[in-house]
């Protein structure tokens, strides 16, 4: 084996090591309790434990957050208030506004590392627990028309 082949073998092995390590980290982080990813499902009832279900609807061009409790149905637009260290399940879908069809949106809470598409005719579920109090931004990151950029707001986490 001459030096050229050696160098080639070396860089292929080096790349493979990087690949395996990166893939390992990728799989390892998904095992973490804080990890959450959107899945195409409607949450089964009854809801486990002390989880609160928030129904999120994207419409051209705002976000509607709906919760149900003993006092009835509560809907807020472009913002929602959550309680810290409490687990929430967001059920996200898209409903039609003035146009014939609903369009695809994408709910994104950057500081929580939470992102899920709002797809017409499909419920996407994502579960997470806010661990800090404060005000955080929410955005739509899938282009949905004229006022796409105004599909944003603030999410407040209180103690």
């Amino acid at each position: 084996m001459n030096s050229k082949a050696k160098i080639e073998a070396l860089w292929i092995i080096g790349v493979l090591v990087v690949l395996v390590v990166a893939a390992g980290i990728n799989i390892y982080t998904t095992e973490s309790p804080n990890f959450t990813i959107a899945t195409k499902e409607t949450p089964s009832s009854p809801i486990p434990g002390n989880t609160t279900v928030v129904y999120v609807e994207g419409v051209q061009w705002s976000w509607l957050f709906t919760t149900y409790n003993s006092t009835g149905k509560h809907t807020t637009t472009d913002g929602v208030t959550l309680t810290v260290n409490h687990t929430y399940t967001f059920v996200i879908t898209s409903i039609k506004g003035s146009h014939q069809f609903a369009v695809i949106h994408d709910l994104y809470i950057p500081q929580f590392d939470v992102q899920a598409y709002a797809v017409p005719g499909q419920n996407n579920t994502i579960t997470f627990t806010p661990i800090h109090t404060g005000t955080f931004i929410i955005e739509c990151v899938e282009y949905c028309g004229y006022l796409h950029y105004e599909m944003r707001g603030y999410l407040t986490v209180v103690a």
Binding site: V15, L19, A22, A23, I27, K40, A116, Y117, N124
Partner: peptide, 21 residues
Amino acid sequence: NSGLGLAWGLFFTTASFAVTI
């Protein structure tokens, strides 16, 4: 994030790492 879920996500992300080679 469109609702593919974890298994599909891991498949596609691992395949994406392979593009590194």
